[in-house]
Write a protein that binds this DNA or RNA. Structure first.
Length: 433
RNA sequence: UCCGGGUUGGGGUAGUGGUCAUCCUUCAGCCUUGUGGAGGCUGAGACGCGGGUUCGAUUCUCGCACCCGGACCCA
């Protein structure tokens, strides 16, 4: 017996069917917005992640040296890859570039609820537009995905913040504050005690009174107050940008799912503008389901022309938890349209019927194990066959097959030459008198 | 990497320092090559791994692995 690797999962048909339904729903929304699918490698050079995130990142990667001596890593996220792709073909791609992709990623970390070492995400990004409408389109894609999956505004919310508001306010307090550390403190603030939060802000360079004031400003949600307090062009512009995004989201039908929450910060290493996180508003532990935001500097830092970008990446595992808690996780029960049952040596006719039904798009099974009548019927039942077509020697002598509806148990005969005939999906009702 | 709780057939369980480890379910075959959900018969399938204590360990003990949850992290 071989055991599965820690943090990796197997998906058996029932769960996989439900996952497929969810993936198809999200990708369908992305396609309707004109996002185009891209395919990307599972391996990239380790250096790409180190340059972006620092040497410590290597501990979180599945990284190794390949047989050609290259230091490579299984991709822990998509953003650097698509940034690389944008830079490589920058001149020939028409802007805005709108791409999506669903695939697994790998991080060497401890599994937790909704977190695994191999995990799936659907990434959706816009490159080349700094217009607030681009941010809003990402929010609208995310909102449409959630509602198409059966969720309502009662069950999730997008907490929207703006990195430049945070950074601008912090700079207004102290010119040389450690913005990164302070933002990280903000990101944690909901989970830790106020005192601990203030201590972290103090560590970042504020004094204690400033920390309290900063906290209170973030909580007020009065954007005008923030502008007045800071009195800087940067905060003024950031607030204007956030408002413009929310206005556009209103027009795109996504505003009702958004709430202003400056205490939402995300990890934020490369975020530059609007950031948001999707929260489960029904769950007892309101942890972030997924997040996204604007990262205008990344492409340039990858060696490209300055190219603004905004994106979102719903992770399938936390999304699954949310959908299950909301009671809208798709049905995992498998179904079969037809089971073509053979009695005696009737394979030529049974196979012809099965092929005809399949050509019409039905899910059709027939015996491939030489089983008895009763065993075939039991199998048909176990795979939730809707209709069983009995192809038996006795009926064939009369030029007939038997059509049985498994739910009711009723059955009737049909002329073998007229089955399925012109019908796409014949049932018992089509032949019952 | 750290903390807490777990681990007995595929799933769910009972139990014990000593005969063939309990029961339910599942799966396969048969009763049943003309009728599934019921029933019967037969079969498959487990003490996570390693060390220690012991005449003997699934049971006691230590370590590890894995699972669940949490911390850190969340690019």
């Amino acid at each position: 017996m071989y055991e599965r690797l820690k943090g990796f999962r197997d998906f058996y048909p029932g769960e996989m069917q439900a996952r497929r339904t969810v993936i198809d729903a999200m990708e369908s929304v992305a396609k309707r917005y004109g996002f185009r699918e891209v395919g990307t490698p599972a391996l990239e050079r380790t250096r790409m992640y180190v340059d972006k995130s620092g040497e410590e990142i290597v501990d979180e990667l599945y990284s190794f040296t390949d047989q050609g001596g290259r230091d490579v890593a299984l991709t822990p996220e998509l953003t650097p890859t698509v940034a690389r792709m944008v830079v490589a073909k920058q001149q020939e791609l028409s802007k805005p570039i709108k791409w999506y992709s669903t695939r697994p990623f790998w991080r060497y970390e401890e599994p937790q609820q909704g977190r695994f070492r191999e995990f799936y995400q659907t990434n959706v990004d816009v490159f080349g537009s700094s217009d607030p409408a681009a941010d809003a389109e990402i929010l609208a894609f995310a909102a449409d995905s959630m509602t198409d999956l059966g969720l309502t505004g009662e069950e999730f919310e997008f907490r929207v913040s703006h990195r430049d508001i945070l950074g601008g306010l912090l700079s207004a307090f102290e010119a040389d504050v450690d913005v990164r550390a302070a933002v990280r403190a903000v990101d944690k603030s909901a989970k830790i005690a106020d005192e601990e939060y203030y201590d972290l802000l103090v560590d970042a360079g504020l004094d204690y009174d400033e920390a309290r004031q900063f906290d209170s400003l973030l909580g007020s949600e009065d954007l005008d107050e923030l502008v007045d307090f800071a009195g800087t062009e940067r905060v003024d512009e950031a607030v204007g940008n956030l408002r413009a995004v929310l206005d556009a989201a209103e027009d795109f039908g996504a505003r009702e799912y958004c709430s202003l929450s400056l205490e939402t910060a995300r990890g934020l290493d490369y975020y530059t503008g609007v950031v948001f996180e999707c929260f489960d508003s029904t769950g007892e532990v309101s942890r972030s389901v997924f997040g996204g935001g604007r990262y205008d500097d990344l492409i340039e830092s990858f060696g490209g022309q300055p190219t603004p970008a905004v994106g979102v990446a719903p992770g399938h595992a936390p999304l699954q938890l949310l959908l299950q808690r909301a009671g809208v996780w798709p049905d995992e029960a498998l179904s079969t349209d037809y089971y073509v049952l053979q009695v005696g040596d009737t394979r030529p006719t049974a196979a012809r019927i099965a092929r005809d039904l399949r050509e019409r798009g039905n899910v059709v099974e027939t015996d491939v194990s030489g089983r008895s009548f009763g065993a075939q019927m039991g199998y048909a039942d176990s795979v939730n066959a809707r209709t069983v077509v009995i192809v038996g020697e006795r009926d064939l002598e009369n030029g007939e097959v038997t059509v049985k509806d498994m739910a009711s148990g009723e059955q009737t005969t049909a002329p073998v030459d007229d089955f399925p005939g012109e019908r796409d999906a014949p049932t018992y009702d089509d032949f019952a008198v």
